[in-house]
C-alpha cells in the first residue's frame, strides 16, 4: 500500500459511509461522489503543469530525485535554481552565428500577431459584405466558402510548397503569412455576428454622409467588439501553436518559430530535458495571459458556435 492507494481508498470509504447513513435518499452521497470525481479530473489535468514548472526550476542533478518540488527542508540553490533558463538563453551556435532564444520568441510573436491583425481586418470586411449587402454572385460564393472549409489544410501544402519555391518565397515570412491572412471560417464568424445589426442604423449612417467603408469602421466594428476579441484570441492561439506550415516553409534557424525550434531542441538536449521544458513553459505563458484576460468572451464564443450551428 502506498500513499496514493490509501488516499483513493479513503475517498471510496467516504462514499460508502455517506451512502450507508441514508441509502433511501443518497443525495448527499451522490454530491460527494460528483465532487470527488471532478476533483480527481482537475488534479489529473493540473499535475503535468505543476510537474513542468517543477522540472524547469529543479537543478539538473536532482531532476529525477523528486517527483515534483523537493521538500522545503532540502530547498537550496543546489536543488532549485534558474540553471535551465540560463542555459536556454545562452544562445545556440548556428551557421549564421549565435542565435538567442529571444529571437524565436520575437519570431513567434511577430508571426502570430501579423496574421491575427490581417485576419481581423480582412475577415471582418468580407463578413460585413456577406452580412449586409446583396450582390450578384453572393450565393455561389458562400457555397464555395463552405466547401473550402472541408478541405484539409494539409492537402494544400504540397502545391503551396512548389509555388513558394517558384515565387522564391521559401524561408520568408511573406510566404508563410500571405496564404493565412484571411479565411472562410473567420468570415462566417463575422457574418454571423453582423447579420443582426439593423439596416436602419446603417442607412442612418449613410444619410449622415458616412462612406461605405466609414460605416464598416465606425458603426459596425464597434458593435462586434466582443466577438472580435474572441476571434483574435482564437487566431493568435492557433498561429502561435502552428507547426506544419512554419516547419516546411522556414529553413534558417534564426527565423524559426517556437514550436519548430522546441521540437528540434528535443534532439539537441536529449538528456537535459530541463532546458527544452523551460522553453516549453515560456511558450505556454503568452497564450495563457491572453486567455485569462479574455476567458469569458472566448468560452461563450466557442459554445455559441456549436449551439447556433
Amino acid at each position: 500500500m502506498n500513499a496514493l492507494q490509501i488516499v483513493l481508498l479513503l475517498l471510496a470509504l467516504g462514499f460508502v459511509v455517506l451512502y450507508a447513513r441514508s441509502p433511501r435518499n443518497p443525495k448527499l452521497a451522490l454530491a460527494y461522489l460528483r465532487w470527488v470525481a471532478l476533483g480527481i479530473a482537475a488534479i489529473l489535468v493540473l499535475a503535468p503543469f505543476v510537474w513542468l514548472i517543477a522540472a524547469v526550476f529543479k537543478d539538473r542533478a536532482v531532476l529525477n530525485e523528486y517527483v515534483f518540488f523537493p521538500p522545503p527542508s532540502e530547498w537550496s540553490e543546489k536543488t532549485v535554481n534558474l540553471g535551465n533558463l540560463r542555459r536556454l538563453f545562452a544562445g545556440d551556435d548556428t551557421v549564421q552565428g549565435k542565435v538567442f532564444f529571444w529571437q524565436y520568441v520575437i519570431n513567434s510573436l511577430f508571426f502570430a500577431s501579423a496574421i491575427t491583425i490581417l485576419q481581423l481586418t480582412f475577415c471582418s470586411l468580407a463578413g460585413y459584405a456577406l452580412a449586409k449587402y446583396d450582390f450578384v454572385g453572393k450565393r455561389p460564393l458562400m457555397v464555395f466558402m463552405l466547401g473550402s472549409m472541408m478541405v484539409p489544410p494539409v492537402l494544400l501544402f504540397p502545391p503551396l510548397y512548389e509555388m513558394m519555391v517558384k515565387l522564391d518565397l521559401i524561408d520568408t515570412y511573406h510566404g508563410l503569412i500571405l496564404p493565412s491572412m484571411v479565411g472562410a471560417y473567420g468570415i462566417f464568424l463575422f457574418r454571423q455576428a453582423m447579420i443582426s445589426i439593423p439596416k436602419e442604423m446603417l442607412d442612418a449612417g449613410r444619410i449622415d454622409g458616412c462612406s461605405e467603408f466609414g460605416i464598416y469602421l465606425r458603426l459596425v466594428m464597434p458593435l462586434v467588439r466582443p466577438m472580435s476579441a474572441a476571434f483574435c484570441l482564437v487566431t493568435f492561439l492557433g498561429q502561435w501553436n502552428s507547426f506544419f506550415g512554419p516547419s516546411i516553409f522556414l529553413q534558417t534557424q534564426s527565423k524559426l518559430t517556437l514550436p519548430v525550434i522546441l521540437n528540434l531542441y528535443i534532439g539537441f538536449y536529449q538528456t537535459e530535458y530541463g532546458v527544452f521544458l523551460a522553453g516549453t513553459l515560456l511558450a505556454i505563458i503568452p497564450p495563457a495571459i491572453l486567455f485569462f484576460a479574455l476567458e469569458k468572451e472566448f468560452i461563450s464564443g466557442l459554445a455559441s458556435g456549436a449551439v447556433k450551428g
Binding site: L52, N263, T280, P287
Partner: peptide, 16 residues
C-alpha cells in the same frame, strides 16, 4: 481548469 490544456499547442503537449 479542465479546458486549460487546450491553450497549449499540440507540439508543446507532445514535448511535455
Amino acid at each position: 481548469v479542465l479546458f486549460s490544456p487546450n491553450l497549449v499547442g499540440q507540439i508543446f503537449v507532445g514535448i511535455l
